[in-house]
Simulated scan of single mutants.
Amino acid sequence: MKDFYSELEVKPDATSEEIKESYRRLAKEYHPDRLPPGTPEKARRYIEEKFKSLQEAYSVLSDPVKRKAYDSQRLSQTKGNERDLGLKAKPSYSTQDGSTWPFDPDKIQKAAEEIELRRRRIETNYNQKIEQVKSEVKRNLILIGIKEEDARVDYTFLTRDENIQSCFVFLFLGLLAFLGGWGWIGAILVLIALVSAWSAFFESGYSKEQVEKAKSLQERAKSEIELREKEKSSELSQLTLYCRSRIDYFKSLPLESLSPEFISGLSGEDQLFLLTAIKERADAEKLKEDLKLAAGIAVGIGILAVLFGLGGGFYPH
């Protein structure tokens, strides 16, 4: 009897919402349409079967009546053979000749997710710092008498005198446009002049001192934001360079050193980089068939897609 809970990676007491959320995530991850052209047939069959199993599990667990009947059958069948229910059993993997597969998909997937998490943390950290700068400049602008809706880093401040000057400039240009036969342009310029006049004579406007302080606060905030953006870019570049250096290292290793013993002794992160290196090696055709297969079917589960837009997948037995 199939364990639908394990199939959807949820516990037996999972709520309907948790089941739905897990199904959507897994269905997206294992959808056959995501496989690029040239995917090996074994990998394609595995992904298609996995996708069908997910649909079957969801059709039962999402229906309260079917789920209740399934739970009754499941409990009666597993009596006397108790084990940790709801925890996804770790799949075993093998090469085509039946020997132990040197790569550990779980470790690789975890490593890829951790690197992606590092990327997101860097971006989130600096985005929060930038928002803090914007909030700080907003508070400071309000403290000097700037209206809340104008208290922004990108707002253009004009003094009362500048508004009056602007009014006369646009009015003059509008009259020139009328005289030159450009009536619609003149009308627009006159309208702008009227808006400037309204701001100058009927709104309170900002004093010269307020505008100078506001512009100073804005410039400081813009400089700090630019600095944070550069720091974020630098940290992301360092992470990318680190990944690239490890991949290049594995590309440089002699082919004879890439034994199953060597591979199985690597961390999940280095196994991830090794798989990427295999796909990039100019002498990849000289590699053992099992290693070429590892890179060739690297599509279905999406291990390498997390980092490099490639794929990572293995076939279980």
Rank of each mutant, 00 (worst) to 15 (best):
M1G: 13
K2L: 15
K2T: 10
D3K: 05
E7V: 15
E7R: 11
L8S: 09
P12A: 14
I19E: 12
E21Y: 08
E21W: 03
A27T: 03
E29I: 08
P32I: 03
P37S: 06
P40R: 02
R44H: 03
E56R: 10
A57T: 02
Y58R: 10
S59V: 09
L61H: 11
D63V: 00
P64I: 03
V65F: 07
K66N: 07
K66D: 07
R67D: 04
K68W: 00
R74A: 10
R74K: 13
L75W: 05
L75S: 07
S76I: 06
Y93M: 03
T95E: 11
T95L: 12
F103V: 02
D104I: 00
D106Q: 10
Q109P: 02
A112Y: 08
E113A: 15
E114A: 14
E114P: 12
I115F: 15
I115A: 12
E116V: 15
R118N: 12
R120E: 15
Y126I: 07
E131Q: 10
Q132K: 08
N140Y: 08
L141P: 01
I144N: 06
E148M: 04
E149I: 00
V153E: 05
F157A: 01
R160W: 12
I164C: 12
Q165Y: 14
S166E: 08
S166K: 12
F168E: 14
F168W: 13
V169L: 11
F172V: 12
L176G: 14
A177K: 04
A177D: 08
F178K: 13
W182L: 14
I185D: 06
A187V: 13
L191S: 11
A193P: 05
E203I: 02
G205V: 01
Y206N: 02
Y206T: 01
S207N: 10
S207K: 05
K208L: 11
E212Y: 02
S216P: 01
L217W: 05
Q218H: 03
E219T: 13
S223R: 15
E224V: 12
E226Q: 14
E229H: 11
K230C: 09
L239H: 02
L239V: 01
L239C: 00
R244N: 15
I247C: 08
D248P: 04
D248A: 15
F250Q: 07
S252K: 09
P254D: 02
L255W: 00
E261Y: 00
F262Y: 12
S264V: 02
G268M: 10
G268A: 08
E269K: 13
Q271W: 06
A277Q: 08
E280C: 10
E280N: 09
R281K: 09
R281P: 06
R281N: 03
A284F: 02
K292T: 05
A295Q: 09
A298Y: 04
V299M: 09
G302T: 10
G302F: 08
G309C: 05
Y315V: 13
P316T: 00
